[in-house]
Design a protein around this nucleic acid. Structure first.
Lengths: 231, 231
DNA sequence: TAGAAATATTGAAGAATATCAATTATTTAC
DNA sequence: GTAAATAATTGATATTCTTCAATATTTCTA
């Protein structure tokens, strides 16, 4: 966690999400005055669940794994965040702590933005706030899907959901699998690592996926969707 | 689903959430023009998962169970909503469908509000939007807790979470249990009804809860918290 | 590049949990 | 108020899944 990159001015930032496009130049300058940019190296923790949330974090450039820590020291991987997404947004109004932990999957430039300045903008600029609400709408849907997956599906269905999620085109064919361990895949599905390995072997055998070390390729998406549906 | 109640004018409504308090009279009048109020009887469905979401729903007065339906026709109960809460808010910007189903646990007055009018207000009134964001912050936290509960806890921990949730003081000592079946309790915990019954019997035996038909009373909250923590 | 550490893999045994079946209790509808 | 329908309960069995243990493979480090 060191600031090696020259910090970009928000007005020049090419990685701004939809919400920042709703800001007028003076507001962008205001954000610029109240942020710091930091480079997190691959594997470094960007935030820790339950830690005091001093800032809202914004991925200016990078790839981040968001996960929940359980008291029995098992993790639940919730989602992968990419460039232009927020981390810890809910700390602006909710409890003043991070609800989850996040770790960089590759070197990532993260902007730390003062919570109070975000709050100010939200109150003054309904268009900005609306974009944030849009983000929450999508995010809520994702969480409901996770609950559906964990709630009543068994191993096969849950692993299928994970594979479909990680291979989704909205990650722009980034090969996420190469950045994740078998345990990561298991933690997305909330199954044991051993079960994940065994099921992957089965899927490989059935020619539904291709496995070559870390690299995993979906051969028969339809069948995976089927397994996901059946639970 | 019939409109027997005289529809209250939003300007006079005493059950308005924090967000509506941020509206100026003309905006409230605007909402009033674009809403209908309907009385749902106990047991009636207020919205169905995957159905076209024409309106945002607001509980003017009532009690509602929100649940997810799975293809294998098992339900997951997500939460109980009470007076002054929204249902289907995320349909304003997300997919144009309800992400979940909702059923009235008691006769409930529900306001159907035009989505477009809410959108208009959000864009024009940052304070209103900020209150909605506040709501999302809390809601997100609840969903993460649900994921934590389902993800790695086993039966005992999950049932404990359910009992703690349903007996929480934020429901103003409403006896929720009397309105829920054993299957409802099981569906909150995502365990089989039989398991729920068995575990309740155990907890009763251990004098951690008192059970009298539907009525359930927590005797030893600390022990339940313990079970919840251990998972 | 060798050795050490971490990760992945496989099999076998055991624990957790669902399902099925049968019975009893409660609620609903006429 | 009674019959029918629904919900709750209990036991026995079957399935799913984790855990433990042993080994193989990969990655990291000096």
């Amino acid at each position: 966690m060191t600031d090696f990159s020259e910090s970009i001015n928000c007005l020049d930032c090419t990685n701004s999400s939809a919400c920042f496009k709703k800001l007028i130049p003076s507001e962008l300058e205001f954000i610029n005055q109240n942020k710091t940019q930091i480079l997190y190296r691959k594997g470094e923790n960007i935030c820790k669940q339950s830690a005091f949330a001093s800032y809202v974090l914004y991925i200016s450039n990078g790839l981040v794994k968001l996960y929940l820590e359980s008291p029995n020291n098992k993790n639940i991987n919730v989602k992968i965040l990419k460039t232009s997404e927020f981390i810890g947004l809910s700390s602006i109004y909710g409890e003043n702590i991070y609800n989850y932990s996040a770790v960089a999957l590759e070197d990532s430039n993260i902007c730390l933005i003062e919570k109070e300045s975000i709050r100010k903008l939200l109150n003054n600029n309904g268009n900005f706030a609306s974009e944030i609400i849009k983000w929450y709408c999508t995010s809520e849907n994702q969480l409901f899907n996770k609950i559906k997956s964990l709630g009543h599906k068994q191993m096969h269905g849950r692993l299928a959901d994970t594979l479909l999620y990680l291979s989704d085109e909205n990650f722009n064919q980034e090969d996420l699998f190469s950045k994740l361990s078998r345990q990561d895949i298991a933690d997305f599905s909330c199954i044991s690592t051993e079960s994940a390995v065994r099921l992957l072997a089965e899927l490989k055998n059935d020619k539904i996926i291709e496995v070559d070390g870390k690299h995993i390729k979906i051969l028969e998406k339809e069948k995976l969707l089927d397994i996901s549906k059946k639970g």
